[in-house]
């Protein structure tokens, strides 16, 4: 079972939920798909090793064969090619590696070479959990490619937690898209609520069953709860706005390690999601 942890905006506690959840259930895998800012390991402190490079095929123009017809540049919707009087100029940073320019070139003048734009890493310790993360090089745009490559390492025979990037853009769709369940983490503040509703729309469109974790509960008002009740969205867990939790967070310690009662709560949430009985979890 693949469970994605997502949120409409950053800083709501997505990573906290992901990390504490994997530490509460035996034999989990964790995939940090927030490839522009992978944070999970701040709390896990694992030694990492490279698993593979993530690269995108970019065109290289053979100027001996190229007749400067310009078909490749006209085709490229990402404007990664410029047809100039002096030759074709390639802007590799903008290329999405679709291969289309090579297909439309009548002269066979387009070759490809891989350009590395990120990396997949793995924690050296495999117990009690297996940890993978993706890292997109600074200035690169293709987060989705790193996320897809990262997700190829999911072992389908074991539960996997996917820490999604914040927001509702393409990388989130890539991270959450093939999950069996999505946990939306939010705070009950006006800003949090706005982004939360956007995230709800997106998971509904993707037709992925989902539930909600309210973080820093007690801060703000009851608008998220009221909304969930009206929309029949299960509230899976409430994490209180607690000084101790905040302090452990700032020290990079997953709070389930110091506050063991919480392991059971996270484990119960997982069981409920797994068995499909989550709609009753905390809703009473």
């Amino acid at each position: 079972m693949k469970i994605a942890i997502a949120s409409g905006k950053g800083g709501t506690g997505k990573t906290t939920v992901a990390v504490n959840l994997v530490l509460s259930v035996e034999g989990m895998q964790l995939f940090d798909c927030d490839v522009e800012e992978p944070n999970c390991n701040l709390f896990l402190g694992q030694e990492l090793e490279k698993v593979e490079d993530v690269s995108c095929p970019v065109p290289v123009i053979d100027s001996d064969k190229c007749t400067l017809c310009g078909k490749c540049a006209t085709f490229c919707r990402y404007n990664a090619l410029a047809a100039l009087p002096t030759g074709i100029m390639v802007f590799p940073f903008l290329c999405h590696g679709c291969g289309g320019c090579g297909l439309v070139c009548p002269e066979g003048a387009v070759q490809e070479e891989p350009r590395v734009l990120g990396v997949v890493e793995k924690g050296k310790t495999t117990a009690p959990l297996e940890f993978y993360r993706g890292l997109l090089n600074i200035g690169e745009a293709m987060a989705t490619l790193v996320i897809r490559t990262l997700q190829e390492h999911i072992d389908a025979s074991r539960p996997a937690i996917i820490d999604s990037p914040p927001g509702v853009a393409c990388p989130v769709i890539a991270a959450v898209g093939n999950a069996d369940y999505c946990v939306l983490v939010t705070e009950s503040t006006p800003f949090g609520f706005h982004d939360f509703k956007l995230a709800v729309e997106v998971v509904k469109l993707m037709k992925i069953p989902f539930g909600v974790v309210i973080n820093r509960d007690g801060l703000g008002d009851s608008r998220v709860e009221d909304f969930c009740r009206a929309e029949k969205i299960p509230i899976l867990l409430k994490i209180p706005n607690d000084m101790r939790i905040a302090r452990l967070y700032s020290e990079g310690i997953p709070f389930v390690e110091e506050m063991p009662g919480w392991k059971e709560k996270f484990a119960a949430m997982f069981k409920a999601i797994e068995s499909g009985s989550e709609s009753g979890v905390m809703n009473a």
């Binding site: 404007n79 047809a83 100039l84 009087p85 802007f91 903008l94």
Partner: peptide, 21 residues
């Protein structure tokens, strides 16, 4: 024509200016 490009507008514009001589 690059005016509405979502990305790479500067590339398209410079390409056009270059090709206009």
């Amino acid at each position: 024509t690059a005016l509405d490009a979502s990305g790479g507008a500067g590339i398209r514009a410079a390409e056009a200016v270059a090709n206009l001589g």
